[in-house]
Design a protein around this nucleic acid. Structure first.
Length: 229
DNA sequence: GCGACAG
DNA sequence: ATCTTGTCGC
């Protein structure tokens, strides 16, 4: 990313939905769909848990060592979302709190795994892309639900996958991480290729449907939210 | 043709 | 996202 685009500006909240869409359309050009040279040894899983009857939320980040998936760092940030959930604009709702959780970490992870889409997005700029571009760091997206695009179901075995295409371009893939379990939807966020992202997600999900860093962040957020009530 | 799209 | 525990099955 060049210096004429301050990262802080990318993280600011838009005044309305029209401006949000304009921001995404412009920033989509910043996404780098290629792997870094440096190896990925630490991975951060990110998530936000929302209180059922208030506007409070808890953003969590859990960093794991790639070699044995042991947790090496974690952070929890309590706050509230200023932006409503609007399909296609999830990043504006979650990014501010997620960035705070990341700042609270003691270590800088080599890769961020987001709960949601990366390039699998109407304007090819989902949460994982936005986060990756703002931090100028490798990021990928893992969603639990499929986009409204034609996707063939991958085979029943762990590791099976099918591409997700939009307008003739590959924007992600459906990946079966466990035998006979619903697939997850993987896409590039920033500074990664889909093949790398797919391989990593499979590697990070040796026992459950979701990658371990995401599972850990998810559980941590739920527990902290319940403990706060 | 329009609308449907993560959390 | 959230409401929700145990239970049936491999």
């Amino acid at each position: 990313m060049s210096d004429d685009h301050p990262r802080a500006a990318y993280a600011r909240l838009p005044r309305d939905e029209a401006e949000a869409v304009a921001m995404q359309t412009e920033l989509a050009g910043c996404v780098v769909e290629a792997d870094d040279d440096s190896p990925i040894e630490t991975i951060a899983g990110l998530d936000i848990a929302y209180d059922k009857d208030s506007d409070s939320a808890v953003a969590t980040a859990v960093v794991m060592r790639r070699s044995d998936l042991a947790e090496i760092d974690r952070s929890v940030v309590h706050g509230a979302s200023d932006f409503p959930y609007v399909p296609g604009l999830l990043a504006f709702r979650e990014l501010p709190l997620l960035l705070q959780a990341i700042e609270a970490l003691a270590v800088t992870p080599d890769l961020y795994v987001c709960d949601g889409y990366g390039l699998t997005h109407p304007r090819r700029f989902g949460l994982a892309c936005h986060l990756g571009v703002v931090l100028d760091a490798p990021a990928i997206g893992v969603a639990k639900n499929p986009p409204h695009l034609p996707v063939e179901a991958p085979g029943p075995k762990r590791g099976a996958w099918t591409p997700i295409t939009a307008s003739g371009e590959t924007v992600g893939c459906a990946l079966r991480t466990q035998d006979g379990v619903k697939p997850v939807y993987v896409s590039v966020g920033h500074r990664s290729t889909l093949a790398t992202a797919r391989g990593l997600v499979l590697e990070l999900a040796p026992k459950y449907r979701l990658p371990e860093p995401i599972r850990a962040a998810d559980q941590l957020g739920r527990r902290r939210l319940a403990a706060t009530e």
